[in-house]
Structure formats: C-alpha cells, structure tokens
Design a binder for these strands. Structure first.
Lengths: 340, 340
DNA sequence: TCTGGCACTCGGCGGGTGAGAGTGCCAGGA
DNA sequence: TCCTGGCACTCTCACCCGCCGAGTGCCAGA
C-alpha cells in the first residue's frame, strides 16, 4: 500500500505541517526534506495519498494537511517502529526532578503532571492509582459529634481516603474504639476480596457495635470506590491555549469541561490500563466526541498493585514523536520511583 | 459629586453595557431606562461622567463604556446600598442543594464551587478552611516499610492531612504504636498553641522514641501548614470562556495559570478573610496583574474556628448585582450548613 | 517512470466607499 | 438657569472589488 517513497512523503508532510501549521505544498517538501525527486513527482504521490484518505486539501489551490488516518499511518509507520524515550538531557532532567521531590504519593503525581505538560506543552493528565487493588493497612474512626464520625482508611501504598458518617443514634467513644480496632484487624488485606466477606460476616452478627461496624465498613468500601472522582489531576491548560487550534474558545470549552469532570476523564483515559505500551489515540479514535479534534498519548505506570495512567492531550497536529517519548520516559521513571 | 440624575445615568449605562457588551449611546439610555429627559441632556451628563473618569469612549463617534472607577461607583452607589441575597427560587435551590449533599467537608466545598459557577457563569473559587485554627483530634502513624511511615492527622472539623516520613533507621511497629498514642494524647488541642510547646518538650527528652516522635511531630506541623496549596479549588472555567472578553486566548492564559497555581490564588483571594461582608475588587484594584481585567467578588464563610473564603472571578463587565447576591447567599447558607 | 512547463483555480489582502451611529455645539423655549 | 431639538461632523465597520501568489493537475518529452 505505502511504498518507501510514499511513506517518506507522508512523514515529511506531517513533520512540516506540525511545525508550520500551514497546508504543505510539494515544493517545500522537496526543498527541505531531501526527497530526491522533483515537485511534480511528489505531487503525484500526494494525489495518491489523498486517494487513500491520508491527506486532504482545504481548497483546490492549497497544500495538503494530514487527516486522522494520515497521522495514524505516520504514528504506526514512523513513530512506533523507532520507539524510544526522551533524549539525554531531558531524560536526565526527569530523573533528577523525581530525586528532589518529597515522597508522598499525591505530591509525586502532582509534580508528574506539571513535568509532563512542561515537556510537551500539552495538557497533562495523571490518574492516581486505584484503591481497589491496594491493601487496607489501617481504619481509623474519629468522633466529631455524638452522632457523627469520620472514617479514615490508609492503604499500604500510602493512599488515604476519608468519609463522614452520620449515625441514627448517639455512639460512645468506647464503642468507636472497639469497632475501630475490630475493623483494622479484620480488614488487613486486599480490599475487594476481604472486605466483601467481612461485610457478610458482620451483617450476621448482632448488637449495637455490629451495627456501627457495618455502617463504617460500608462507608469504607464506598469511599474507596468513590475516591475515583478525585483520582484525576490535570495541568498545563494555559500551555495548550498557545496552540492555534485552540484559539477559538468554542473549540476549547468542551475539552475544558471534560477536564473539569474527573469521572468523565477517567472513563476516557483509564482503559489504557489494559495495554502494556504507550497508547496513541488520534482524533475520532477517541471514545468521546469532546476529544474529536485532539489526540491522547497515554501509558500506564507502576505495577498491578499500585499503578495508574499518565498521558497528554493535545491537538491532532501533535508532535507525536516527542509526546510518545515524554510519556514513555516519565511513566518508566515514575514506575521506578514508586517501585522503590 | 454625583447628583441623583447623574447616578441613575451611570447605573443605566452599566446595566446596559453589561447586557449588550456594546458602547452605550445616549439614545438607548433614554429609550430603555425611562430617565425622563432628552438624549441631549443625557449627553451632557455623559460628558460630565467622562470628565470624572467614570466612563470613556473607545473612539469619538462611539457610545460610552464604564471604566473601573465607573464600576466602583456603580457598586458602591447602586449594588451595595440595596444589598440582598438571591431571589426566591434561586435561594431555595441553593438551600435544597446543600440538603441533598453528603456531609463530608471536601465534597461540600466541591459542590459549592460547582453551584457558584453555575449561578453566575463565572469562575468559582473556594478556599477550604485553614488547618491552623482547627484542633487536632487524632494522629495516626502507619508503617509502610521498615523505614517509611505515613502520618495522618485528623482535626475536629473533619479535615484530614497526611504526609510520608522517611526515617534514618528501621523502626519497629511497637515503637510507632507508642509514639502514635503519645502524640494523639499530647496534641489534643489547638494546633498553634499546643504543638509548638509539645515540640520543645519532646526535643528535651531523650531516647529512640523521642527522636521518632519529634520527627513525626515536625511532619504533622509541616503538612498542616503546607496543605494550604491544596486548599484552593476552582470550577466553571468553561463557562467563563463564553464571555466575549475571554475570546482571545492571550487574555485567558495568565488567568488560567493563576487558577492552576493554588498558592498564588490563595494569596490573591485570602485577605478577604479580614472583611466581614462580601468584598468586590474591580480590575486594577486586584493585587495581581493577572487579574487586571477581571473582577473578584468574594466573602468568607463559616466562623473563626472553621471558615474559609468563596468567590467568583469574572470580567470587570460583570453582573455585580447577581454576583454579590450569589456569593452572599451561598456563603451564608454554607455557614449554616457547617455550623450545624 | 520521472521531469519541466503551462494553464488554471482559489484564498487572502489592500484599498476605496457608503451607511450608520453617536457626538458636541448652539440657539430657542419653559 | 436648565432643558431640548436640530445640525454638522467624525469615525468605525462592513462590504466590495481586483490583484497577487501559491499550489495544483495535466501533458509531452527524456
């Protein structure tokens, strides 16, 4: 389908268009990319690429612009085969940056988002590890009022989730203390497996304290599940606005709305968890219409026990080479940092 | 300085300009605002207002646009004297909304931000209560690795802060447990007062556990102080982009950058804590240049023990009446919710 | 199969023009 | 003394038009 020359014409065209944001003509391709043939020849190749749907002309006397399929062919044919991380100084910068950051999970991820957006000039998205796989290490109940308490859950990965509980009747400090130590002992293990069985066990018991324990346990499970909305953090929106495709506010609004809504963002990006390598989704390949004119480059980080997804979102006219390299380097380095 | 008629001309002009986003001429003012005089008279009033610096003409044959001082006079003379909250249905909506929300602080504040931006179509900013005034209710130490632990602090207002600690040498579970119960008992009280004295007391002690305790205490104080960066949450950026003054990305970028940076945002908005009523800051009245073309309407909520600031940020061409009413109603209602 | 040449097609830009909106000023009237 | 209608003036904006240039497709020849 794509012979050697046609592929290099496409590659050159994408590179040029990404850099210039202008429809690309046959002349500049020959002049700047050493294709070893005349403009007329390139024109016939361009006509063929247009036939295949890889490029299009905004109007008849204009140069060509890559389509989503064109970018796809470019990524599959040019970027992915030469897969690599960031070059020396940038990679070094990433590693040094992590070395200088305090080791609290939330802070590390926040820094990660800032770094990714700085490296790429696109919006960075970081999905914190899900709580589902983590093991509960401690359950704390703190009484705030006669009928109110706060349940705080700490996992072995250092994640913390909390939730307020309202009881139907007053509870005593003693009761809470006993329930707390009971739950802490009982729930020491993987959340999904252990907690569910504990729930049925407690439900079978009777007495005031088992009611409190059941209530607290439900909230624990609930807040672990619902903490998902807060798992997404984004950064670098101002940088994104510098790109000409986002100079029209109408083009940016749906994207910003998506970014503000943690849950939607999560559904959009988190299926990357299933693929092992960096994933590139171009324009309409994205599941949501809001991302129809943007590309997402994402990868998972960490391991099965403690891992999430990082990625960048930018215009389809994206520097895929750099974006892929940055996401790969950052996710690898982050995995190392978390693993130790 | 401002006689009756001149004031009502200014008021009408601001109202009209806010609605139409067009320079306002003498004719429409007379036609739509029942000023009871002819356009020629209004023109002389407008000339006087221009003399005083309350309005200006973008060019000689155009209508007038309010200046920052003009908005200031409008707010002081028209909005503030008739101070009131939102009208019936909106106010009812706010109250009902809070009634249906789970009572965890973070969630309540998040909802507050969403509601404020929905009510006003401007960006909402919510500053969570500072930890400084709250009393520590519980300190938890969870061991994550031989030399690593997580310290979790819960205050009586239901706020939770956490921080990872790295020790110089391995610590045992027993040591951590003893330090934990020691700290929990010692630190039961107001943070600033008690914790500082505890620090000197512990520093004077000797032995392994006092070293651990001192380390943990330092982290507790530190993370209570540093949690400030996470105290700011924003919402409604997409809505803001709908306003014509933000159709130019260059105008939005600095604002978005400010919003992304929690600390800067905090310094910009948190001095509202000192004023009891709704505060309006118009254009250049704002301390930061990024907000030079925007207005901030903010108020504190809660009480001395548990309170913060909420506000909206929009163009100086703002519906001040509605913004002030919305901020007032929401902060009052939020105060009620938190007080109970 | 590639290349140079040629006619053709549009989009964008600069300049000119006319309509419209709004003003300031002035003289006359309550 | 203050208000009003009338009038001449100014300036922007939207529109139109024509030119320039970039880039194409096609074709004949190497």
């Amino acid at each position: 389908m794509l012979n050697e020359r046609r592929r290099s014409v496409l590659s050159a065209l994408v590179d040029e268009y990404v850099a210039s944001v202008q429809p690309v003509g046959s002349k500049v391709l020959v002049q700047r990319y050493g294709l070893g043939c005349s403009p007329a020849t390139v024109r016939s190749e361009l006509a063929a690429l247009e036939e295949t749907g890889y490029v299009f002309q905004p109007h008849v006397s204009a140069g060509r612009i890559p389509t989503d399929s064109g970018y796809r062919a470019y990524v599959d044919g040019v970027v992915t085969p030469a897969a690599s991380g960031l070059a020396g100084s940038d990679a070094e910068g990433v590693r040094r940056h992590y070395a200088s950051v305090e080791r609290e999970l939330g802070e590390v991820l926040h820094e990660t988002s800032a770094m990714l957006s700085r490296l790429t000039s696109y919006v960075a998205v970081v999905v914190a590890p899900t709580f589902r796989r983590a093991r509960i290490r401690r359950v704390t109940l703190v009484q705030l009022a006669p009928r109110r308490a706060l349940v705080v859950v700490v996992t072995d990965s250092g994640q913390v989730a909390d939730r307020a509980i309202e009881f139907d009747a007053d509870v005593t400090a003693d009761e809470l203390t006993r329930v707390e130590s009971y739950l802490s002992q009982t729930l020491d293990g993987a959340v999904e497996a252990v907690a569910e069985s504990a729930r049925t066990r407690i439900a079978a018991m009777s007495g005031r304290e088992s009611v409190i324990a059941l209530r607290a346990l439900n909230e624990v499970l609930d807040c672990l599940a619902e903490a998902d909305a807060d798992r997404v953090m984004t950064g670098g929106v101002p940088a994104l606005l510098a790109h000409p495709e986002f100079s029209d506010p109408a083009a940016v609004r749906p994207l910003l709305a998506l970014l503000e809504d943690g849950i939607s963002m999560l559904t959009v990006i988190s299926d990357v968890m299933r693929t092992p390598d960096v994933e590139v989704r171009i324009g309409h390949e994205n599941p949501s219409v809001e991302l129809g004119h943007t590309s997402v480059v994402a990868a998972r980080y960490g391991n099965d026990d403690l891992g999430g997804v990082i990625g960048v979102i930018g215009p389809t006219r994206m520097d895929y080479r750099r974006a892929v390299a940055a996401v790969r380097t950052v996710s690898d380095t982050l995995s190392d940092v978390l693993g130790s």
